[in-house]
């Protein structure tokens, strides 16, 4: 298998730390560079779409893409991961793509099962087939360790572990780091909603790891999220976006040279 030249990221952490903000903003930045980018959102609570500037997207996609065979769930013939991502994802600004599954509705999760199984097949194909190797794949995972434990991001070679300096968030981050390492993935710690330098130091100290990027609190981001808008579209000049750009520069070193 040819190693992917695009990013293969899973964004993980406790609820409310800013996973969707970081995943969605990163995706928009890379798409604006002209890169091919898809965000895979498997959270039952819709999130990434808003951060990408696509409004609230509540569809559970791919409900008809898979079927249950005697040997388990399979994608229909002709439905490879590349085909599905190119033809079934929602298209956002600058051509950024969003594929999401299993959005909980008033009926609960039961009706979302085919969507979840098809989505799972797509993530596995992405991991094993070397497909879309030149695309950036960014997984916005549900909060907490459960989905990483069940391997909902098998394509990811790098886990962005997002945490605030709060103790619940840090305990979660420590669990996520253990899980990522069991997978053999690289761990990059992102300190989020940082109020001061001591927050960043607290994160590094607690996790005993360097902080790869520190993203400050930013009123403009909070206002964007309250209004259902993408921080990328309305908070571009703020301190948080500046640091997400720095994160993109570190993840894609050629980016800084080109811009």
């Amino acid at each position: 298998m040819k190693p992917a030249s695009g990013l293969r990221l899973a964004v993980v952490g406790k609820g409310g730390v800013g996973k969707s903000f970081i995943a969605g903003t990163l995706a928009r930045l890379l798409a604006a560079d002209g890169r091919k980018v898809v965000v895979l959102d498997s959270d039952p609570v819709a999130g990434a779409a808003v951060s990408m500037g696509m409004g609230v997207v509540t569809d559970s996609m791919l409900a008809d893409a898979a079927f249950e065979s005697p040997n388990g769930w399979r994608l229909h013939p002709g439905m490879g991961a590349a085909t599905i991502i190119k033809s079934r994802s929602a298209v956002g600004p600058d051509g950024v793509r969003l594929l999401q599954s299993g959005k909980a509705d008033v009926g609960g999760m039961s009706g979302t099962w085919p969507s979840i199984r098809a989505f799972g097949q797509v993530t596995r194909r992405l991991a094993s087939d070397g497909v879309l190797g030149d695309w950036d794949v960014i997984g916005d995972l549900p909060a907490g360790p459960r989905h990483a434990a069940f391997n909902w991001a098998p394509y990811a070679d790098t886990y962005l572990v997002v945490t605030t300096a709060g103790s619940m968030s840090l305990v979660t981050a420590r669990r996520m780091i253990r899980l990522a390492r069991q997978r053999g993935a690289e761990v990059l710690v992102v300190a989020s909603r940082v109020e001061s330098h001591s927050d960043t130091s607290a994160v590094a100290g607690w996790l005993d790891l360097p902080v790869f990027m520190s993203i400050p609190t930013d009123d403009a981001v909070r206002e964007a999220e309250a209004g259902g808008l993408a921080p990328f579209d309305v908070a571009m000049d703020g301190p948080a976006l500046q640091q997400v750009r720095a994160l993109a520069d570190r993840l894609v070193p050629s980016r800084k040279v080109n811009s």
């Binding site: 909060a143 907490g144 360790p145 434990a149 103790s167 619940m168 840090l170 305990v171 979660t172 669990r175």
Partner: peptide, 19 residues
């Protein structure tokens, strides 16, 4: 009942013990 149990922190057991 969370798979990421953190209630120990908020009832005052502390982060290390909760973990």
């Amino acid at each position: 009942a969370d798979t990421n149990p953190m209630l120990g922190v908020s009832v005052g057991l502390g982060a290390e013990e909760t973990d």
